[in-house]
Design a binder for these strands. Structure first.
Length: 605
RNA sequence: GGAGUGGUAGCUCAGUUGGUUAGAGCACCGGCCUGUCACGCCGGGGGUCGCGGGUUCGAGUCCCGUUCACUCCGCCA
């Protein structure tokens, strides 16, 4: 067994005899002396072989990269002038007295060298066990383990119980597409893998467990992104008898202490809070990246009477929005071609164009000092209003968004972030915030009905109910008791106070177009449980992968998951998913009927 | 479902207007080398240019289809 990890050796070990186990990172054979960088989880150490130890020197000549070695030797100070300051163990080396080749290795299909260029991701995924030997990936997984350990300790200290919930559960309507698992003992019926343990954790509150947490895998069969995997990990939390202030305060403390413990970083205290409405108004997003100082400025009222339909139509539409995004000193930052590229960019979000005004010399020349194709449509009053409201100065560039509010928010919100990234306008700091006062419902245009913005178990704000718990007022303005935690433009957590009265839960189902009988069939167990002394309760769930991604400065959650799936939800390492044995299908009472002719997928290309 | 980028040696890439035998670095193999640390020097092997079709005297290069990976839109309570 090893006595030390390679990477932990330093000058304090000089004179000691050690045993190391590890992989050959590099071998430098000088004929008369051989150096091997031996690597393990904790780092590198240089081991030295000299011809005087004839037998093991011969062995060392056979050694190749990624061979697995066990060595014994004496730690000694390196000769003067041969220290390597790049290496934590660079002051010392190990003179080998015994060497055993525990295993050989074929040449590996990807370099582990930190100096080489980026390796394509499909190669990395195909040989993930080799990719994970890289220092960067090892550090990611170590950091992830440390984060999980911290969160468990914190919650355990606060009296939270780690309780497991089923992986084989009931398919529910609404929400994401379920992964289904056929039942052998109930032919023709299916389990679903949980999209989250939402209902079980509510039942645990009804069961009186009071404080629950779980680090739990969740499954959603939807299309993927850099920050979305079909199976992902949540830190899931639920408490009884706490209101939204209590919960967000506690969770904020947890995150603040986590950043101090893992990264030594002090987050703001308290985290800023924004209402959903304000976030949308100022940033066009419910997860604003506050590292970027740019903001949207409303000018709808100034455009009501202009003779430019692109602006006046949304200005006169109650659902329309007209905004300006001011880019300070943008004239010199952006070329005409770049502005055209941004016009294409906002087109992705449905914007029909991207009007702009260059402020060349407003101070000296007034409107003659402005430059824009749309200038001729705008009367002096409108221009003065824009200049005043945006506080624009000479050299600035103004971008305009005018359309349905949803399109303006998405397009200009995305433009704001994109400009921030492209022009390096991001502050070098961590910007967490709570977004609160979410709408309870949103209108689903394709389904022609209301749907829950958070989920159907979220409680409405108290002012929306009468003393008997009956919902009052206009659905489109009703606010919920939901809250999201946003960090640098990523939603890393979200939760709410839940509905704990049966009657109110039935009303919400009803408003969401879930019939009485469907509610019984799908959620009967919940409705019944709510009758038996359900405590007021609420909770939150954090996207652990996203949190680790941000904390390790990764750009994809795949880089913090040991064995992630590709964008088409395939595993390149195991070639999952795959066809199954006909006998297995028969036992399940299933027959595969494919729409297309592709029955077998080629695994290699 | 849609848009974009890419696929050439084990890896990372270059490959001109369509024209001789498809190149480089790293890795690999053989030889040399006692203080290197991305060691060095000499020599060598290695290619279904993702796949299928088309245009052409001739295709890595042009066209069509398809597939895989990535980014994004839709989707993701």
């Amino acid at each position: 067994m090893r006595s030390h990890y390679c990477g932990q050796l330093n000058a304090s070990h000089i004179g000691q005899t050690v045993e190391l186990n590890g992989w050959v990172h590099h071998r430098r054979d000088h004929g008369g002396v051989i150096f091997i960088d031996l690597r393990d989880r904790e780092g590198l150490a240089q081991i030295v072989l000299v011809p005087e130890t004839t037998e093991i020197f011969k062995l060392a000549e056979q050694v190749r990269n990624e061979y697995v070695l066990r060595i014994n030797g004496a730690v000694r100070r390196r000769p003067e002038g041969t220290e390597n300051p790049e290496l934590p163990s660079g002051a010392i080396e190990i003179l080998v007295s015994n060497l055993e080749i525990l295993n050989r290795s074929d040449p590996i299909p990807l370099p582990l060298d930190e100096h080489t260029q980026k390796i394509s991701e499909d190669v990395r995924l195909r040989y993930r066990y080799l990719d994970l030997r890289r220092t960067e990936m090892q550090n990611h997984l170590i950091t992830r383990a440390n984060i999980v350990q911290f969160l468990r300790r914190f919650l355990d200290d606060k009296g939270f119980l780690d309780i497991e919930t089923p992986m084989l559960t009931k398919s529910t309507p609404e929400g994401a597409r379920d992964y289904l698992v056929p039942s052998r003992t109930h032919l023709g019926q299916f389990f679903a893998l949980p999209q989250s343990p939402q209902l079980f954790k509510q039942l645990l509150m009804i069961a009186g467990m009071d404080r629950y947490y779980q680090i739990v895998r969740c499954f959603r069969d939807e299309d993927l992104r850099a920050d979305r995997q079909p199976e992902f990990t949540q830190l899931d939390v639920e408490t009884s008898f706490m209101d939204e202030q209590d919960i967000t305060n506690l969770m904020e403390t947890m995150i603040r202490q986590l950043f101090m413990a893992i990264l030594g970083i002090e987050l703001p205290n308290p985290f800023p809070r924004l209402t959903y409405a304000e976030a949308m108004q100022r940033f066009g997003s419910d997860r604003p990246d506050l590292r970027i100082a740019l903001e949207l400025v409303d000018i709808k009222d100034l455009m009501v009477e202009v003779k430019f339909k692109v602006f006046s139509t949304p200005a006169n539409d109650p659902k329309g929005r007209v905004v300006v995004l001011r880019l300070p000193q943008g004239n010199s930052l952006l070329s005409r071609k770049e502005i055209d590229d941004y016009t294409k960019f906002v087109g992705i979000y449905g914007a029909k164009g991207l009007a702009y005004i260059k402020i060349n010399a407003w101070n000296s020349k007034g409107r003659d000092g402005l430059q824009s194709p749309i200038l001729k449509f705008l009367p002096d009053t409108a221009i003065e209003g824009i200049m005043q409201r945006t506080g624009a100065e000479d050299g600035d560039l103004l971008f305009f968004g005018a359309d349905q509010a949803s399109i303006v928010n998405e397009a200009m919100g995305a433009l704001r972030v994109r400009l921030g990234q492209d022009l390096k306008l991001l502050k070098d700091q961590w910007c967490p915030l709570w977004v609160v006062d979410f709408p309870m419902f949103e209108w689903d245009k394709s389904a022609h009905r209301w749907s829950a913005l958070h989920h159907p178990f979220t409680a409405p704000k108290l002012e929306n109910t009468d003393s008997h718990g009956k919902l009052l007022g206009d659905l489109s303005n009703m606010l919920s008791r939901a809250y999201d935690l946003v960090l640098n433009g990523s939603e890393i957590g979200g939760g709410s106070i839940r509905i704990h009265q049966e009657e109110l839960q039935r009303q919400v189902f009803n408003l969401l177009g879930i019939s009485e009988s469907e509610a019984e069939e799908k959620f009967g167990f919940l409705l019944q449980a709510l009758k038996y002394g359900c405590p007021p309760h609420g909770g939150i769930a954090f996207g652990l992968d996203r949190l680790v991604m941000l904390m390790t400065h990764s750009t994809s959650i795949r880089d913090v998951i040991a064995f992630p799936k590709t964008q088409t939800a395939a595993c390149l390492l195991t070639s999952a998913p795959s066809a199954v044995n006909p006998k297995q299908l028969e036992e399940l009472g299933l027959r595969v009927h494919l729409r297309t002719t592709t029955t077998t997928k080629s695994l290699s290309n």
